[in-house]
Computed example of a mutant assay.
Amino acid sequence: MDYPILNSQTITYEQLAKTIDHSLLRPELTRAEVIQGCELAARYHVASVCVKPCHVRLAWEVLKGSDVAVGTVVGFPHGSSTTAIKVAEALQALEDGATELDMVINIGELRSGNDDFVRQDIQAVVTAAKGHIVKVILENAYLSKEQIVRGCQLAEQAGAHFVKTSTGFAPSGATVEDVRLMRASVGPRVQVKAAGGIRTLEAILEIIDAGATRVGATATAAILDAFRARQNSVQ
Rank of each mutant, 00 (worst) to 15 (best):
D2T: 14
N7I: 05
Q9N: 14
T12M: 08
Y13M: 11
Y13Q: 12
L16M: 08
A17Y: 10
A17C: 12
D21A: 09
S23F: 00
S23E: 03
L24M: 09
R26P: 00
L29G: 06
L29E: 00
R31M: 11
A32G: 15
I35E: 14
I35W: 10
Q36I: 06
G37K: 04
L40S: 09
A41T: 07
A42R: 12
R43G: 03
R43E: 13
S48P: 09
R57T: 11
L58H: 10
A59G: 06
W60G: 15
W60Q: 14
W60A: 14
K64Q: 15
S66R: 05
A69H: 13
V70D: 05
V70L: 05
T72S: 12
H78I: 13
T83V: 13
A84R: 14
A84P: 04
A84E: 15
I85F: 10
K86Y: 03
V87A: 03
E89F: 01
A90P: 05
A90G: 00
L91C: 06
Q92G: 11
Q92T: 15
Q92H: 10
A93G: 07
A93E: 00
L94F: 00
E95K: 15
D96C: 12
G97A: 07
A98E: 02
L101W: 02
I105L: 13
I107K: 10
G108Y: 07
G108L: 07
E109C: 11
L110W: 10
R111Q: 14
G113M: 03
D115P: 02
D115L: 10
D116G: 03
D116H: 12
V118W: 03
D121P: 03
I122Y: 03
A124P: 00
V125F: 07
V126G: 04
A129P: 04
H132T: 04
I133R: 10
V134S: 01
V134M: 03
K135R: 00
I137K: 00
L138I: 05
E139G: 02
A141F: 11
Y142K: 11
S144N: 05
E146T: 11
E146V: 07
Q147T: 11
Q147A: 15
R150I: 08
R150L: 11
R150K: 15
R150G: 11
R150Q: 15
G151S: 02
G151V: 02
G151L: 08
Q153S: 08
E156T: 08
Q157Y: 09
A158L: 02
A158P: 04
H161R: 04
H161P: 02
K164T: 00
T165Q: 08
A170L: 09
A170E: 13
P171H: 07
S172M: 12
E177C: 02
E177T: 13
D178K: 06
V179K: 08
V179Y: 05
L181W: 01
S185T: 01
V186Y: 00
A194L: 04
A194V: 10
A195E: 02
G196V: 09
G196R: 01
G197W: 01
T200E: 05
L201N: 00
L201F: 07
L201R: 04
E202P: 01
I204R: 02
E206N: 14
I208A: 06
A210S: 09
R214Q: 06
V215S: 09
A217G: 11
A217S: 13
T220Y: 08
T220D: 06
T220F: 08
A221M: 05
A221T: 10
A222R: 13
A222E: 14
A222Q: 13
R228A: 12
R228V: 09
R230A: 15
Q231I: 10
Q231T: 07
S233K: 10
